[in-house]
Amino acid sequence: MKVFRRLILAIGMFGLVYNCAQVKKSRTIKLAHGLDVNHSVHKAMVKMGEDLVKISGGKMQLEIYPSQQLGTERECIELLQIGSLDMTKVSVGVMENFAPHMKVFGLPYLFKDRAHSFRVLDGAIGQELLDEGIQYWIKGLAYYDAGSRSFYTKDKPIRTPDDLKGLKIRVMESVTAMDMVKSLGGSPTPISWGELYTSLQQGVVDGAENNPPSFYLSRHYEVCKYYALDEHTVLPDVLIIGTHIWNRLTEQEKQWLKQAVDASVVYQRKLWAEAEKEALEEVQKAGVTVIRPDKELFSKEVEAVYSLYEQEEDIRELIERIKDYN
Protein backbone atom coordinates (compact mmCIF):
# COMPACT_ATOMS: atom_id res chain seq x y z
CA MET A 1 0.00 0.00 0.00
CA LYS A 2 2.86 2.39 0.92
CA VAL A 3 4.55 1.67 -2.40
CA PHE A 4 1.28 2.42 -4.23
CA ARG A 5 0.84 5.72 -2.37
CA ARG A 6 4.40 6.72 -3.18
CA LEU A 7 3.79 5.88 -6.82
CA ILE A 8 0.63 8.05 -6.89
CA LEU A 9 2.53 10.88 -5.17
CA ALA A 10 5.42 10.58 -7.63
CA ILE A 11 3.02 10.69 -10.58
CA GLY A 12 1.31 13.74 -9.07
CA MET A 13 4.62 15.52 -8.53
CA PHE A 14 5.71 14.71 -12.08
CA GLY A 15 2.45 16.17 -13.39
CA LEU A 16 2.93 19.34 -11.37
CA VAL A 17 6.52 19.78 -12.58
CA TYR A 18 5.47 19.05 -16.17
CA ASN A 19 2.62 21.57 -16.02
CA CYS A 20 4.93 24.21 -14.56
CA ALA A 21 7.39 23.55 -17.35
CA GLN A 22 4.62 23.95 -19.90
CA VAL A 23 3.59 27.27 -18.32
CA LYS A 24 7.20 28.47 -18.49
CA LYS A 25 7.31 27.61 -22.19
CA SER A 26 4.54 30.15 -22.85
CA ARG A 27 6.03 33.62 -23.47
CA THR A 28 3.90 36.65 -22.61
CA ILE A 29 4.78 39.96 -24.29
CA LYS A 30 3.60 43.10 -22.55
CA LEU A 31 2.32 45.76 -24.97
CA ALA A 32 1.10 49.25 -23.97
CA HIS A 33 -0.26 52.19 -25.94
CA GLY A 34 -2.13 55.45 -25.40
CA LEU A 35 -5.19 54.98 -27.58
CA ASP A 36 -8.84 54.27 -26.79
CA VAL A 37 -10.04 50.64 -26.96
CA ASN A 38 -12.36 51.59 -29.84
CA HIS A 39 -9.46 52.81 -31.96
CA SER A 40 -8.49 50.77 -35.03
CA VAL A 41 -4.93 50.35 -33.72
CA HIS A 42 -6.14 48.76 -30.48
CA LYS A 43 -8.51 46.46 -32.39
CA ALA A 44 -5.63 45.45 -34.66
CA MET A 45 -3.50 44.67 -31.61
CA VAL A 46 -6.26 42.49 -30.16
CA LYS A 47 -6.31 40.58 -33.46
CA MET A 48 -2.52 40.37 -33.37
CA GLY A 49 -2.73 38.79 -29.92
CA GLU A 50 -5.36 36.29 -31.04
CA ASP A 51 -3.35 35.39 -34.14
CA LEU A 52 -0.16 35.03 -32.12
CA VAL A 53 -1.75 32.48 -29.82
CA LYS A 54 -3.06 30.50 -32.82
CA ILE A 55 0.15 30.68 -34.85
CA SER A 56 2.36 29.69 -31.91
CA GLY A 57 0.03 27.00 -30.62
CA GLY A 58 -0.33 28.89 -27.35
CA LYS A 59 3.41 29.33 -26.84
CA MET A 60 3.23 33.13 -27.22
CA GLN A 61 0.65 35.70 -26.18
CA LEU A 62 0.16 39.44 -25.81
CA GLU A 63 -0.86 41.32 -22.67
CA ILE A 64 -2.28 44.68 -23.83
CA TYR A 65 -2.51 47.88 -21.74
CA PRO A 66 -4.44 50.60 -23.66
CA SER A 67 -5.44 54.21 -22.87
CA GLN A 68 -2.13 55.37 -21.33
CA GLN A 69 -2.42 52.89 -18.47
CA LEU A 70 1.37 52.67 -18.38
CA GLY A 71 2.10 56.25 -19.41
CA THR A 72 2.38 58.61 -22.37
CA GLU A 73 4.00 57.58 -25.64
CA ARG A 74 7.36 58.98 -24.61
CA GLU A 75 7.12 57.31 -21.19
CA CYS A 76 6.30 53.98 -22.84
CA ILE A 77 9.38 54.28 -25.05
CA GLU A 78 11.52 54.94 -21.98
CA LEU A 79 9.98 51.94 -20.18
CA LEU A 80 10.75 49.86 -23.25
CA GLN A 81 14.37 51.03 -23.31
CA ILE A 82 15.00 49.94 -19.72
CA GLY A 83 13.24 46.60 -20.22
CA SER A 84 10.13 47.28 -18.11
CA LEU A 85 7.89 47.09 -21.20
CA ASP A 86 8.21 44.86 -24.26
CA MET A 87 6.22 46.58 -27.02
CA THR A 88 4.42 49.84 -27.66
CA LYS A 89 2.84 51.94 -30.41
CA VAL A 90 3.90 55.53 -30.87
CA SER A 91 3.44 58.20 -33.49
CA VAL A 92 6.39 58.59 -35.82
CA GLY A 93 6.45 62.20 -34.61
CA VAL A 94 7.50 61.01 -31.16
CA MET A 95 9.91 58.44 -32.61
CA GLU A 96 12.00 61.15 -34.28
CA ASN A 97 13.50 61.80 -30.84
CA PHE A 98 14.88 58.24 -30.86
CA ALA A 99 15.33 57.55 -34.60
CA PRO A 100 16.37 60.99 -35.95
CA HIS A 101 15.80 60.28 -39.65
CA MET A 102 12.13 59.57 -38.97
CA LYS A 103 11.65 63.33 -38.68
CA VAL A 104 11.38 63.32 -42.48
CA PHE A 105 7.80 62.03 -42.12
CA GLY A 106 6.88 65.23 -40.30
CA LEU A 107 7.58 67.32 -43.38
CA PRO A 108 4.30 68.67 -44.76
CA TYR A 109 2.99 67.46 -48.12
CA LEU A 110 5.85 64.97 -48.52
CA PHE A 111 3.75 62.25 -50.17
CA LYS A 112 1.81 62.45 -53.43
CA ASP A 113 -1.12 60.49 -51.99
CA ARG A 114 -1.98 57.68 -49.57
CA ALA A 115 -0.88 54.95 -51.98
CA HIS A 116 2.53 56.61 -52.33
CA SER A 117 2.94 56.73 -48.54
CA PHE A 118 2.17 53.00 -48.24
CA ARG A 119 4.72 52.14 -50.95
CA VAL A 120 7.41 54.07 -49.07
CA LEU A 121 6.51 52.69 -45.64
CA ASP A 122 6.26 49.08 -46.80
CA GLY A 123 9.41 49.28 -48.93
CA ALA A 124 13.16 49.58 -48.39
CA ILE A 125 13.03 53.15 -47.05
CA GLY A 126 10.44 52.26 -44.43
CA GLN A 127 12.49 49.26 -43.28
CA GLU A 128 15.68 51.32 -43.03
CA LEU A 129 13.94 53.76 -40.71
CA LEU A 130 12.41 50.96 -38.60
CA ASP A 131 15.91 49.62 -37.96
CA GLU A 132 17.43 53.00 -37.10
CA GLY A 133 16.36 52.88 -33.46
CA ILE A 134 18.20 49.63 -32.70
CA GLN A 135 21.17 51.59 -31.33
CA TYR A 136 18.72 53.08 -28.81
CA TRP A 137 17.37 49.60 -27.80
CA ILE A 138 14.29 50.04 -30.04
CA LYS A 139 13.40 47.86 -33.03
CA GLY A 140 10.60 48.93 -35.34
CA LEU A 141 8.26 46.17 -36.48
CA ALA A 142 5.67 47.86 -38.71
CA TYR A 143 3.69 50.98 -39.53
CA TYR A 144 -0.02 51.41 -38.78
CA ASP A 145 -2.09 53.86 -40.80
CA ALA A 146 -2.78 57.13 -39.00
CA GLY A 147 -4.14 59.00 -42.00
CA SER A 148 -3.47 62.68 -42.56
CA ARG A 149 -3.32 65.33 -39.85
CA SER A 150 -5.41 68.50 -40.09
CA PHE A 151 -6.16 71.51 -37.89
CA TYR A 152 -9.14 71.81 -35.54
CA THR A 153 -9.95 74.93 -33.56
CA LYS A 154 -12.33 76.23 -30.89
CA ASP A 155 -13.49 79.66 -31.99
CA LYS A 156 -12.03 80.48 -35.40
CA PRO A 157 -12.35 78.50 -38.65
CA ILE A 158 -9.13 77.87 -40.59
CA ARG A 159 -9.64 78.51 -44.31
CA THR A 160 -6.24 79.96 -45.23
CA PRO A 161 -2.81 79.95 -43.54
CA ASP A 162 -3.44 83.52 -42.41
CA ASP A 163 -6.19 82.25 -40.11
CA LEU A 164 -3.58 80.42 -38.03
CA LYS A 165 -1.60 83.54 -37.20
CA GLY A 166 -1.38 84.12 -33.47
CA LEU A 167 -3.21 80.89 -32.55
CA LYS A 168 -1.74 78.53 -29.97
CA ILE A 169 -1.81 75.08 -31.59
CA ARG A 170 -1.06 71.90 -29.67
CA VAL A 171 1.61 69.74 -31.29
CA MET A 172 3.41 66.55 -30.33
CA GLU A 173 6.93 66.64 -28.91
CA SER A 174 8.26 66.95 -32.44
CA VAL A 175 10.61 69.64 -33.69
CA THR A 176 9.32 69.10 -37.23
CA ALA A 177 5.71 69.67 -36.14
CA MET A 178 6.73 72.83 -34.31
CA ASP A 179 8.57 74.15 -37.37
CA MET A 180 5.56 73.41 -39.56
CA VAL A 181 3.12 75.32 -37.32
CA LYS A 182 5.57 78.23 -37.03
CA SER A 183 5.86 78.45 -40.82
CA LEU A 184 2.08 78.94 -40.97
CA GLY A 185 2.15 81.71 -38.38
CA GLY A 186 0.83 79.69 -35.45
CA SER A 187 2.35 79.26 -32.01
CA PRO A 188 3.21 75.55 -31.47
CA THR A 189 2.56 74.28 -27.93
CA PRO A 190 3.65 70.72 -26.98
CA ILE A 191 1.09 69.06 -24.69
CA SER A 192 0.62 65.36 -23.96
CA TRP A 193 -2.38 63.72 -25.60
CA GLY A 194 -3.97 62.83 -22.28
CA GLU A 195 -3.96 66.46 -21.11
CA LEU A 196 -5.20 68.01 -24.35
CA TYR A 197 -8.98 67.89 -23.75
CA THR A 198 -8.65 69.89 -20.54
CA SER A 199 -6.13 72.26 -22.15
CA LEU A 200 -8.60 73.00 -24.94
CA GLN A 201 -11.43 73.55 -22.45
CA GLN A 202 -9.36 75.91 -20.33
CA GLY A 203 -8.00 77.88 -23.27
CA VAL A 204 -4.38 76.83 -22.76
CA VAL A 205 -4.40 76.27 -26.54
CA ASP A 206 -6.76 77.47 -29.28
CA GLY A 207 -6.68 74.26 -31.24
CA ALA A 208 -4.71 71.21 -32.27
CA GLU A 209 -3.98 69.04 -35.28
CA ASN A 210 -4.72 65.37 -35.77
CA ASN A 211 -6.51 62.83 -37.95
CA PRO A 212 -10.33 62.40 -38.03
CA PRO A 213 -10.62 59.23 -35.86
CA SER A 214 -8.42 60.72 -33.14
CA PHE A 215 -10.40 63.97 -33.23
CA TYR A 216 -13.62 61.97 -32.87
CA LEU A 217 -12.62 59.29 -30.33
CA SER A 218 -10.90 61.83 -28.06
CA ARG A 219 -14.18 63.81 -28.01
CA HIS A 220 -12.23 66.96 -28.80
CA TYR A 221 -15.12 67.84 -31.13
CA GLU A 222 -17.09 68.71 -27.99
CA VAL A 223 -14.77 71.70 -27.54
CA CYS A 224 -13.51 72.42 -31.06
CA LYS A 225 -16.25 73.13 -33.59
CA TYR A 226 -14.10 73.75 -36.68
CA TYR A 227 -12.13 71.08 -38.53
CA ALA A 228 -10.07 72.17 -41.57
CA LEU A 229 -9.01 69.23 -43.73
CA ASP A 230 -5.76 70.73 -45.01
CA GLU A 231 -4.11 67.28 -44.53
CA HIS A 232 -0.67 68.79 -43.99
CA THR A 233 1.20 65.70 -42.82
CA VAL A 234 0.97 61.92 -43.07
CA LEU A 235 2.41 60.64 -39.80
CA PRO A 236 2.03 56.87 -39.43
CA ASP A 237 2.01 55.07 -36.12
CA VAL A 238 4.99 52.82 -35.45
CA LEU A 239 4.83 49.47 -33.66
CA ILE A 240 8.10 48.96 -31.79
CA ILE A 241 9.66 46.29 -29.60
CA GLY A 242 12.54 46.55 -27.15
CA THR A 243 15.77 44.89 -28.24
CA HIS A 244 15.99 43.36 -24.74
CA ILE A 245 13.05 41.08 -25.55
CA TRP A 246 13.65 40.81 -29.31
CA ASN A 247 17.16 39.46 -28.82
CA ARG A 248 15.84 36.82 -26.41
CA LEU A 249 13.29 35.48 -28.87
CA THR A 250 14.16 32.36 -30.83
CA GLU A 251 14.10 32.58 -34.63
CA GLN A 252 10.82 30.65 -34.57
CA GLU A 253 9.28 33.08 -32.07
CA LYS A 254 10.40 36.05 -34.19
CA GLN A 255 8.71 34.50 -37.21
CA TRP A 256 5.48 33.91 -35.27
CA LEU A 257 5.45 37.47 -33.98
CA LYS A 258 6.24 39.01 -37.37
CA GLN A 259 3.49 36.97 -39.02
CA ALA A 260 0.95 38.19 -36.46
CA VAL A 261 2.20 41.78 -36.81
CA ASP A 262 1.95 41.76 -40.62
CA ALA A 263 -1.61 40.42 -40.49
CA SER A 264 -2.55 43.13 -37.98
CA VAL A 265 -1.25 45.85 -40.33
CA VAL A 266 -3.53 44.72 -43.17
CA TYR A 267 -6.48 44.51 -40.76
CA GLN A 268 -5.79 47.90 -39.19
CA ARG A 269 -5.55 49.72 -42.52
CA LYS A 270 -8.94 48.36 -43.51
CA LEU A 271 -10.44 49.43 -40.17
CA TRP A 272 -8.78 52.84 -40.49
CA ALA A 273 -10.47 53.64 -43.81
CA GLU A 274 -13.84 52.79 -42.26
CA ALA A 275 -13.05 54.78 -39.10
CA GLU A 276 -12.10 57.92 -41.05
CA LYS A 277 -15.44 57.93 -42.87
CA GLU A 278 -17.40 57.32 -39.66
CA ALA A 279 -15.48 59.99 -37.71
CA LEU A 280 -16.20 62.75 -40.24
CA GLU A 281 -19.88 61.81 -40.34
CA GLU A 282 -20.21 61.76 -36.55
CA VAL A 283 -18.41 65.03 -35.79
CA GLN A 284 -20.58 66.81 -38.34
CA LYS A 285 -23.68 65.37 -36.67
CA ALA A 286 -22.32 66.83 -33.41
CA GLY A 287 -22.20 70.31 -34.93
CA VAL A 288 -18.63 70.54 -36.19
CA THR A 289 -18.09 72.56 -39.36
CA VAL A 290 -15.80 70.56 -41.65
CA ILE A 291 -13.84 72.85 -43.98
CA ARG A 292 -11.99 71.71 -47.11
CA PRO A 293 -9.51 74.53 -47.75
CA ASP A 294 -7.27 74.98 -50.79
CA LYS A 295 -4.24 72.81 -49.89
CA GLU A 296 -2.06 74.70 -52.38
CA LEU A 297 -2.19 77.76 -50.12
CA PHE A 298 -0.83 75.76 -47.20
CA SER A 299 1.71 73.87 -49.30
CA LYS A 300 3.31 77.12 -50.50
CA GLU A 301 3.56 78.52 -46.98
CA VAL A 302 5.44 75.51 -45.60
CA GLU A 303 8.14 75.39 -48.28
CA ALA A 304 10.45 77.18 -45.85
CA VAL A 305 10.37 74.12 -43.58
CA TYR A 306 12.11 72.08 -46.29
CA SER A 307 14.96 74.57 -46.52
CA LEU A 308 15.65 73.98 -42.81
CA TYR A 309 16.04 70.23 -43.27
CA GLU A 310 17.65 70.11 -46.69
CA GLN A 311 20.78 71.60 -45.13
CA GLU A 312 21.42 68.10 -43.74
CA GLU A 313 22.78 66.03 -46.62
CA ASP A 314 21.36 62.69 -45.45
CA ILE A 315 17.90 64.20 -44.91
CA ARG A 316 18.01 65.93 -48.30
CA GLU A 317 18.85 62.62 -49.97
CA LEU A 318 16.07 60.88 -48.04
CA ILE A 319 13.52 63.50 -49.16
CA GLU A 320 14.59 63.00 -52.78
CA ARG A 321 14.37 59.20 -52.49
CA ILE A 322 10.87 59.41 -51.01
CA LYS A 323 9.58 61.84 -53.62
CA ASP A 324 11.00 59.67 -56.45
CA TYR A 325 9.82 56.35 -54.94
CA ASN A 326 7.43 54.45 -57.23
Rank of each mutant, 00 (worst) to 15 (best):
Y309E: 10
E173T: 03
G106R: 00
S307L: 07
Y306M: 02
T198F: 06
E222A: 07
L217Q: 11
S192M: 05
T72V: 05
I55W: 10
R316A: 13
E320W: 06
Q255I: 15
S67C: 01
L52K: 01
A124C: 10
V46D: 11
V205Y: 08
I11T: 12
E296R: 01
A228I: 11
C76L: 14
T72W: 05
G133N: 05
V37R: 13
E73Q: 09
V238Q: 04
K300I: 14
I245Y: 04
L280Q: 02
M60V: 05
L200D: 14
H232N: 07
Y325P: 02
G58V: 13
V266M: 05
K156L: 11
V17T: 02
Q81D: 11
A208R: 00
K2G: 08
R159L: 13
D314H: 08
L184C: 02
I158T: 02
V46L: 11
E195V: 03
I64M: 05
S187M: 03
L107P: 01
K139R: 14
L16G: 02
D262E: 13
N19E: 10
K54E: 14
K154W: 03
L249Y: 07
L297W: 13
S150C: 09
D113F: 14
I319P: 03
K285A: 13
A263K: 01
E78N: 09
R149A: 12
G106C: 07
E63G: 02
K182S: 13
E195T: 02
R321N: 06
H116Q: 06
V305M: 07
K139S: 14
Y226L: 04
D131W: 03
V265M: 03
E320D: 14
G123L: 12
P157D: 13
G57L: 03
Q284S: 15
P293C: 09
W256L: 02
R316F: 15
S148W: 13
G15E: 05
M180L: 15
Q69F: 04
W256H: 05
T250M: 08
I322S: 08
Q127D: 10
G93W: 06
V223K: 01
F111N: 00
L130Y: 09
Y109P: 04
F105V: 08
K24I: 01
V92K: 01
T160V: 12
L257D: 10
G93P: 07
G15S: 09
D294R: 02
F215L: 11
I11K: 01
Q284K: 10
T233E: 09
E173S: 08
R248Y: 04
E231G: 06
R219C: 08
